[in-house]
Design a binder for these strands. Structure first.
Lengths: 340, 340
DNA sequence: GACTGGCACTCGGTACAGTCGAGTGCCAGA
DNA sequence: TCTGGCACTCGACTGTACCGAGTGCCAGTC
């Protein structure tokens, strides 16, 4: 049972109108606003088919039609025309991102920009440590038995951990430790460090062995294994746009999900190069977000991906516009990172 | 026109009942639930006086009474009895905060704990740089003309900035710079550094002068002047408790305000030692938060204050319980910080 | 003078009936 | 295959009536 071109055009028109007006759209309004070249009655027949196929549905008998998740999916996959960014948006992006002083700043600006442009909830993942390389490791003595380990990654991320040494370590030894770890680890990807760290312990002179052992434990455990991912969020106030119509009036589950970093990471962290992922309503694995859609993509300097970013909004969302914006922002951020 | 003891008891009963039930409380229900020892008619007379004085009001003619902001204020100042923490809460606090590995971790755990215990929106300010001292400054060469400046503060905060040097600086000079800044600045409070930094530039050998000048600019501008405050937030989902009754159904302004770091800082950042500040509804200077109350206090190791924390909720809030929890959490966090 | 019981009154909430109109499905005809 | 027409459905809105919680007031009592 194929859908001919006109039926697809009808679906597209329904999606576009519903997204714009937020009201179920009827056959009459449809022919008035779009040049379909047929009468309302014909459109009604098409609608009946579309409904049977599960692309649209009627909220109640005497109302217009509303797209289903499946309808949005078809729309996104086959019907939406790419919407180029307006010059104003383009300018906004550039203006927003120049002058960022450090990574924190870049991420914060980006997430706000994204929230503002899409008028939805924006999420930006910090460059993943798993995808970073070590640029420098610093050991700062806090007391004789305590070191602050500072790792600077090539992506700009800086992580610090307190290391409790088993025994006091003199300043000279700290210098030696610093030299050793830097020689061995600088330049390598964090995901590849475990064997290197192992070797580091084995190769270190015996008087440094105990300290190096604790140090390596901290390194492995906190930086590599449970690789600390960070997330920035903005625009939650946008959830309240459209009154209580979106999310059927229960913001609760959405807000709860947004507080779980793990959930957010799942949403936007699994980015693949140069694809933009769109999850619509039910397609979402997280129950709390079944009423929402997510548009996400990866970003990074050049062609490599170091993290993800995206937005979350009602299924009734301007997909073409949102996709365009998300992509554009990701590209700009990538360029920005490439400069450093 | 003094309020005698019974009128105060009536006000207290109204506040307690309204907070518990979220429904306007009438004279009859009041005498049933509290041992006031008088008849409903008498209570009604008292209520009339309380209303005249602006402590309570009637949402509509045929309804019970509801406390006004002024009523809550009186309640908080003179009527509420301190509510000791339950052992369960006490245990929760301890359990939640042990095992924190670094400052980020402490702050995140704290803000979640606070949100969970009070069932409201929790805000925790990172230890303020203005109130921190320099523990160590590190310069990491990124390229010949770029340094990463890492400052470790005694409060555990670690800040990094990229420094663009006017001309290439050899490794030896970086070492010299590092030694100079550390000698001069370690141990001093950030708020007191400007004259020291000035001296640093003037005293530095001429071949280091240009680099030191840029370095000092970065130091002053980004770390001292617009001293970067950081904030953690949790529990926004709690805003949706109590349906749409609180905040008269418009979460919007609240969510917007919560996204503004400046606003949050104003709320909880102006902490004075050992006081717990309670801002009720209208008392709040921020228009968007006129429908909310804020309970905040300072925290820090020992008696010193390094930052603020607090919660935000509906004016209809369990003030005694919230105040007790906020204080307790602040105390525990202080102890935790003192250990480092 | 302070408290109480009684009573009339107010007014939001709910239930119900009636009307309106947008939108549909179906069918006969072009 | 499309179209115009028509009967039908059902949510939204309006107006009415009623109930009851809660009040204010007043006369009476301690």
């Amino acid at each position: 049972m194929g859908l001919d071109d006109r039926k697809l055009a009808v679906l597209r028109a329904i999606v576009e109108d519903y997204v714009a007006t937020q009201e179920p759209v009827g056959s009459k309004a449809l022919v008035e606003r779009h040049q379909l070249g047929v009468s309302p009655a014909t459109v009604r027949n098409d609608m009946a088919v579309l409904e049977e196929e599960g692309y649209i549905r009627q909220p109640h008998t005497s109302a217009g039609r509303v797209p289903t998740d499946r309808g949005y999916r078809l729309f996104v996959d086959r019907l939406s025309r790419v919407k180029p960014l307006s010059p104003a948006e383009r300018r906004a992006i550039e203006r927003f991102l120049v002058g960022a002083v450090d990574l924190d700043d870049v991420v914060h600006r980006t997430v706000r920009l994204l929230a503002q442009l899409t008028r939805q909830v924006a999420v930006v993942q910090y460059p993943s440590l798993a995808r970073s390389s070590v640029r420098h490791l610093e050991l700062v003595p806090i007391s004789t038995t305590r070191l602050m380990l500072v790792m600077i990654a090539d992506t700009g991320r800086v992580e610090q951990r307190l290391v409790e040494l088993p025994a006091p370590v003199p300043a000279d030894d700290v210098t030696a430790l610093r030299r050793l770890v830097n020689e061995k680890l600088v330049g390598s990807r964090l995901s590849e460090t475990p064997p290197l760290v192992q070797a580091l312990v084995e190769e270190s002179p015996s008087h440094l062995r105990p300290a190096m052992t604790t140090l390596s434990t901290v390194l492995l455990e906190t930086l590599v294994e449970r690789h600390e991912e960070r997330i920035a969020l903005a625009g939650t106030a946008n959830l309240t746009r459209g009154g209580l119509l979106d999310f059927q009036g229960s913001l609760r589950p959405i807000l709860e999900a947004l507080e779980e970093e793990v959930v957010l990471l799942k949403l936007i962290g699994e980015a693949e190069p140069s694809t933009t992922r769109v999850l619509i309503g039910d397609e979402n694995e997280i129950d709390n977000l079944r009423a929402a859609s997510v548009v996400s993509t990866g970003y990074g300097p050049g062609a490599t991906i170091v993290g993800g970013l995206g937005v979350l909004g009602p299924t009734r969302m301007d997909y073409p516009g949102t996709i365009a914006t998300v992509r554009a922002v990701a590209r700009y951020v990538g360029e920005l990172l490439a400069q450093n």
